[in-house]
Structure formats: C-alpha cells, structure tokens
Write a protein that binds this DNA or RNA. Structure first.
Lengths: 251, 251
DNA sequence: CGAAAAAGCTAATCCATGTTAAATATAATC
DNA sequence: GATTATATTTAACATGGATTAGCTTTTTCG
C-alpha cells in the first residue's frame, strides 16, 4: 500500500467519528509523518517510557500487552490496518503498557508533540481522536468481561467473532473468512488461557463444525452458533458511523 | 457535602490533567447542573440506551458493569467521589454498559448535549476530559491483566491496593485504612471469582496478617507485602499531576 | 424491638483448565 | 534442501477455584 493511500484510510476512519472540514484534513495531511516499516515483534512504545511517537497503522497487525511480575503476558488489544497506534499512551506522561508489532507493519509515525498540537488547534480532529480512544475503551471493557466471566470456549468464540467483524470493517475479511496472524500462544495471551487449552478449544470448535482453519486462516462456518456460544453482541464495537456524536444530531 | 464544594473538587481534579483558564472554570460552573441524590442500586445509564445525562460524583460510590448471556455480572470499574460519571458512554451513540450506584450518591447531573458543546467550545476542558477517559482506560487495561493472568489472592490483593491509593487521592483513606462499601459478591464481580472464594481469600489475607477487616472497613497492615502479592505497580493510575500532558512541557 | 432479608462464613465435593512432557508439523535460515 | 527453530497437537495427571448446601451474623425495615 502506498503511503498516501494509507493516510486516506485513516482520514476516512476519523470522519466516521465526526465530520471534518477541508482544513482539518489538510492539517492531518500536513503532519510531519515518517513512513517506515517495523519488523515483527519490534516495539513502538515500551511500558515505563514517556511516549514519543504515535503511528498510523497502514498495513499489518500490532498488539498492546503487559507482563506480570511472574512473567506471564496479557494482551489487551489487537490492532488492525487503518487504526491509530497509540493514542492511548500519547496523551499521558508515561506509557503504562507495551505496544508491539504482531507482523511486519507499514506505519506513518509522527511525534506525539505534533499530534498534541494538532488536537489542540483543530478541535474536530481532537474530538474524532477522542472518540477513537473511547471505542478502544469499549473494547477493553468487553475484554474484561470475556476473561472475567466467560468459559474457555466462549472466550475464544467471542474473540473470533470480534476479529471477523473488525477485519470486515477494515476490508480484510469476506464471507466470514479471514487471515489472523496470531499463534495459539498469542490467542492464549488474549484470553487468559494456556496455549495447550487454546489448542483443545480450537480443535473442538472445528469438530463441532463451527469453524475451519488452515494455517492462520479462519473461516466461520456457522456464524449464528459461534456468536451464540461466544455471547457476542456487536454493540461494544460501535461500528455504525455517526450516532449522536456530532453536535447537530445531539439535540 | 455542599453542591459547590463538590463542584470545586471536580474542578481541581480536571486541573491536574491540564491547565484551565478562568474562562474554562466559569464555563464549567455555568453548566446547567441538576443536583440530586441517587439511591443505592439505581442506574445512571443502561446498556443499549442512548446516553442522555452525565454526572459528577460528589459523594458516594458507583460502578460500571455488564451482564453476560447466562446472567453473570462483571464489574469493569468502581468510581469514587470527585470522578466523572460517565464520560465513557457520553460521546458515543449507545451505551455499551451499565452505570449503577453502589451507595446513595450525591451527583450533579448535566445533559450530555451540554457537555459535548462544552468540550467543543472550550478545548482545554475537552482535553482534560479526554485525559480523564484515558486514565479510565488505563485502569480497564490493568483489570484485564488482573482477571486474565493473576491468581485469586493476587487479584484481590491488587484490588485492595488500587482502592487504597485511589481513595487516598480522593482524601478518603489515611494510614492505609479505608471504608469500601462493597459486598464480597461485588468484589467477586470485580475479580471474576465467586463470592465463596472471595471470602476464603479475604480470610486468608487476614490470617497472613496482611489486612484487617471490620464491617466494610479495610486496613492494610503490611502494605509492602500486599503490594508484592498483588503484583501492584502504581504506574497505571497516572496519579502524578501534569506530566508532558500540557503543551508547554511537551517540547 | 423483632422479624425477615441480606451478607458472611465454612465444609465437602467436583471439574474446567493448568501443567508437564513428548511427538509431529510447519516455518525460517543457511 | 537440509537443518534448526517455532508452532501445533496429544495425552496423563494435578489443582485452583467453582459448586452446593447449610449455618451464622449483620443489616434492614416494619
């Protein structure tokens, strides 16, 4: 994907959160982006460091995680092309978690300070970015529910449903089929399970005829049943553009 | 607590997130607040409904939660006097979770639409509110780690440490002693455990001499050990005011 | 105050998921 | 294309926390 093409994707994404004027879009295009490729497993931000750069994820996948005192990892979210990395840390003094690449990623990085100024000077952009972070939060909350109150088969089913919809929204899934470049160990770290048990559950979902897998591709065969087993409701993804987000429709 | 006194507390809180001018503060004071008391267990917002009102929590405690398909509840956060309820839902089209009172609460409610206009017209206020929601998010992330990767004694120890620090910041705890108006069932819903097991663990923490309890009061006797067992690090609470949050220090 | 409801506590048993270990398959690297 | 590293799969066994049930204490409310 070419750099400006990726940028347009991000612009479209932001516009669904609130209307932007031509000046807003120009200001985004005028940001001092650095286009580069980050290797798999490389870090954009590390816990404990002050956040210096923010990135638009143009291609590839990334994830947020923390490591506990006894060395166990918990992944808190997975990010897909078109999304911001990492607004969550960028407006705070110290990063409280790691942001790491899942695959090789093309990104457009920009200094956090420039982004802060942008949000300050262009309130509509600030608003749209704020809403982006609020949707991140909605997903965090659902993940708390997932690891806190669902059993293993529900957790994994839920994760697979979430990925299906988000990838579809990103134009990377069709007919409930997608590539997700995660190992079973990483799925375990998303769901608070062990890799061994993730394997058992994935196999079971296959035996039940709910999904089919080949390498890293997933095909959801019985969407309705998977959704039901995963206790999956799309509401928290806030996929519908607009809503009473802008002032005009808010009264 | 008198109404304006509560409002000042919220103003002070916002100011720690970024400097506000006199005009900003006046705009907040001029908001069409309605002061009222909400009964224990009453709802401020319900999942699935469009958010209509936002509130400043002046006295009392509240919490966010969702209920899974088979009726289990997961609490996603607990809110203390001085905090906003509920910025998380207020800038989205539909509430994706419930916000409910834990105790009788004095609140200052304001229409979501008025708050949206405020954020639009006073960018510094918008910025400060945004940062409030980002800190909410940081706590959500830590809770994912807590329920996903810590065992029961760590989870509960972690929760007790978090409450101690947040209550101290709110001026409601001293000498590692505080009142937390939660039943063991609600603690279970915070930690993804059962009430029976929460009871076992609390008793065990008492036997180990780490805490003392009487009714709803908690006293942390050995802070260092509790913090260690709970794998608790304060970073995610972002308690230090300032940081490179404001533009001046951002270059 | 006295009754009823809610919350706290305890014990016995069970099971979903973890642990450990190894074999196989796939992907990366020279 | 052989070699090595990484990921997947399976099996046997262990266990942390769930479940169930009953009892006790505290709180609520008439």
């Amino acid at each position: 994907m070419s750099a400006p093409e990726g940028l347009d994707r991000v612009l479209r994404r932001l516009e669904t959160r609130g209307p932007l004027g031509a000046d807003d879009k120009d200001a985004i295009r005028a940001l001092p982006f650095t286009y580069r490729t980050l290797e798999p497993a490389s870090y954009l931000v590390r816990e404990g460091e002050p956040p210096e750069i923010c990135a638009l994820l143009l291609t590839g996948f990334a994830y947020r995680h923390k490591v506990t005192g006894n060395g166990e990892r918990q992944i808190m979210s997975v990010h897909m092309p078109g999304e911001f990395l990492d607004l969550q840390n960028s407006f705070l003094g110290v990063a409280d978690h790691n942001v790491q690449m899942l695959t090789r990623c093309d990104v457009a990085t920009v200094a956090v300070a420039a982004l802060r100024r942008l949000a300050e000077e262009y309130p509509k952009i600030g608003r749209a970015m704020w809403i982006e972070t609020l949707i991140d939060s909605a997903i965090f909350r659902e993940w708390i529910v997932n690891v806190g109150r669902r059993d293993s088969i529900s957790r994994i089913s839920h994760l697979l449903c979430e990925f299906a919809l988000r990838l579809e929204a990103a134009g990377l899934a069709r007919d409930n089929r997608y590539e997700i470049p995660m190992t079973q160990e990483q799925i375990a770290d998303c769901t608070g399970l062990t890799p061994v048990h993730v394997n058992r559950v994935l196999k079971e979902l296959g035996r039940m005829g709910l999904i089919e897998r080949a390498k890293r591709s997933v095909s959801i065969v019985q969407w309705d049943r998977l959704q039901q087993i995963g206790d999956f409701n799309t509401r928290y993804l806030h996929l519908e553009a607009g809503g009473p987000t802008n002032l005009a429709s808010a009264r």
